[in-house]
Amino acid sequence: MPMITSNNSPLKRLLNDVGPVDQVAIEERVAKFATRSIKKASKLQGLNLAVSMVDLTTLEGSDTPGKVASLCQKAQHPDPELTTPQVAAVCVYPFMVKHARACLGDSNVRIASVATGFPAGQVPLRTRIQEVKQAVKDGADEIDMVIQRGLFLAGNIQAVQDEISAVVEACGDARLKVILEVSELESYDKIRAASFLAMQVIRPGDFIKTSTGKTSGNATLANNQVMLEAIRDFYLSTGTSISMKPAGGIKNSKQALQYLVAVKETLGDAWLIPERYRFGASSLLNDLLMQLRKQQEGVYQAPWKFSDASSGY
């Protein structure tokens, strides 16, 4: 069957409206972020800031209420030996929200729940909305939704935007994070376009987010940068501040500091707060704590001191 070009034209129009991304320039730019020398006091500050921005995540089929309880404990008291801040949020599947709420009570650690047929999003809208409402009712403060990449790539961008609007409505007071799943969007241009598509209908303070962490591709400095620049351009043209969450593949402190450099140099200090920037990660927190303990005690640390599931080797 020949391609129906008229189906593609709204996507083309959107791409045209938001403008292209210079791939070489973006990749050159982010390569430079790794060259900043961040030592001593500024490193400590960066590590602590990163801790406060972590969405401590467990999204496994094998999650149990017990595992979520220990995750919540870790979120509130990352390390008994350190004076670190609490993490921003725990991130769990909808079924685990009520267990997390029971553990966290009225703690400042927020509860984020992935919803809307995570991770593929290939579920009818009605059940996706139902999922969001149930998660909010069970006590979720934040909802991480996935867009239907299939609809977007087929050019049906109006449907994608309508779905996001519908989820915004279903969220009520809960904050929304829109996962674009950039690894399935094929190009920087489309990542930028999808960012704008979401930003046009979400509320100030809502997030756009790179990835589910469930596909072959994860957050990278480059796709993070494309989205940060989209947020910047959107802010400059509308005055609306959208928040950002890279997720997946950010495993160590060095990477986290590079992402913070990117935020600082693209959006400035106003975005260097947990309300505006988050890391979706499961193993990052332990590495941050390991580096903080290294700074405090002066010796390199062993992984088994940080509730790591290492074999003790």
Binding site: G298, V299, Y300, Q301, A302, P303, K305
Partner: peptide, 8 residues
């Protein structure tokens, strides 16, 4: 220093 003190 590192060879002797590293806790891992």
């Amino acid at each position: 220093d590192t060879f002797a003190s590293h806790e891992h």
